[in-house]
Design a protein around this nucleic acid. Structure first.
Lengths: 229, 229
DNA sequence: TTGTTAATGTGATAACTATCACGATAGCCG
DNA sequence: CGGCTATCGTGATAGTTATCACATTAACAA
């Protein structure tokens, strides 16, 4: 493995997360050792791709044998920083926010929901099925700072997404996961990830209309012009 | 624009979806015409990238002027197949499923939720805030076929994701959006998109531990080996 | 100890994607 | 109506990511 600050492909990081899942499943199925081929089969990634991805971070396997299932999962977690606890806050306890609060997977992966916020007085203070307390939105900055939350999750309507992001930054979070459909801007030193559910569906729609659609999108040289300006 | 069956980058399709959003916002702000620079500013994509993306499908702008805001949004929708109605079913009316059913954005983008399914008798038949009816899961294949649903959304627990996918395929859907954390397998002729919320968070965790972490991940040549096999 | 086998780790190569730079052109104004 | 300006559309180029092919090596058996 190389020592220089090699740039890791973003796609590699995405895959690492899925490897963990597959490894845990394979482990549960009784595989103490997995080959890149078996793991690849399991998570639909080519064996070569898996080996390459891992090679960016070190050597985790035994030639001629494979990878220790539990060990590899452990190592990948360390790579992704999932061996630490990430204090997290969530803003906007609507349907989606509620869903995320109850998503047990988070806790298992090292994320600790330390607080939630909403501007609906009916929801304030009430504890959900989890032990997370919902605070009024006015306390966002204060509590986020107090709890030293590193990550903020935005599940508010599009119209207030940017303002929410600003407050989270003010509260000192270092990363934001935004589920609102419009992208938000944050300072250099804060990392933002936008999850657009609609985009995913639109992507599907495109693939479907291409494969199963009646006619081609662009058959002629015809140009679609905007109305005269 | 070229006529041959050029391969469109997947990334381009993803961006097109976000362009629609930005265009609608800009339109609401009163911009009847937008330049690639303004649009780029708005959705955080380089102007050249936008022009390139659009050039795969035709010429939509006016040199020296820009793009007609409304027109461009319309054209992109046509490209993505959002000018048609996509009958959609949802399986698993838990928190997340509930959230998606109530997501008005879907309807606005051409997706019509024609039915939902759940195996909890308490939820069956009850209408949610929307006009979607929740059926017992046993009727999935039948109703999906009846309604000619093209898209299926999976929001069931990981353990039953694969079985749900199988039934959706049996019911005749052409595309599946899977929110369960484990990937599912489908036949060649069905398109699958996996949305992994945990992966997104893990990605964030990685970036944060790299930027703000105490120490580097791989400082020495040390190799992490699995326990002797 | 030495040969055999299986599966890793990785340099080289191919494929894909984004960026750049500039030619083309519509609109405007005098 | 001709020159000027703004902005598009796109071929060429640079950068990034995935695939391939094989040398390497741990385990095991005779």
């Amino acid at each position: 493995m190389k020592q220089k600050e090699i740039k890791i492909p973003e796609a590699t990081i995405k895959r690492l997360s899925t490897y963990i899942n597959c490894l845990e499943r394979l482990d549960a199925e009784g595989f103490q050792v997995v080959s890149s081929e078996l793991l690849g089969e399991s998570c639909q990634v080519s064996p070569a791709q898996i080996r390459k991805d891992l090679s960016y971070f070190g050597e985790f396997g035994v030639r001629g044998v494979g990878y220790g299932t539990k060990n590899l999962a452990e190592q990948i977690k360390k790579i992704l920083g999932l061996d630490k606890i990430w204090p997290t806050v969530l803003v906007g306890v609507g349907h989606l926010g509620h869903a995320l609060l109850n998503f047990t997977f988070f806790r298992e992966h090292g994320y600790r929901m330390v607080a939630a916020f909403d501007n609906d007085p009916g929801k304030i203070g009430r504890e959900v099925t989890t032990d997370v307390i919902i605070h009024p939105i006015e306390k966002l900055v204060e509590i986020t700072r107090e709890e030293r939350a590193a990550i903020g999750i935005i599940t508010v309507p599009a119209s207030s997404a940017q303002e929410t992001a600003d407050r989270l930054v003010e509260g000192g979070v270092k990363g934001i996961l935004n589920f609102a459909p419009n992208k938000v801007k944050v300072p250099e030193n804060v990392t933002i990830r936008n999850v657009s559910i609609v985009s995913e569906l639109d992507n599907l729609a495109y693939l479907l209309s291409k494969k199963h659609g009646r006619r081609r999108l662009t058959r002629k040289k015809t140009i679609s012009r905007p109305p005269k300006l």
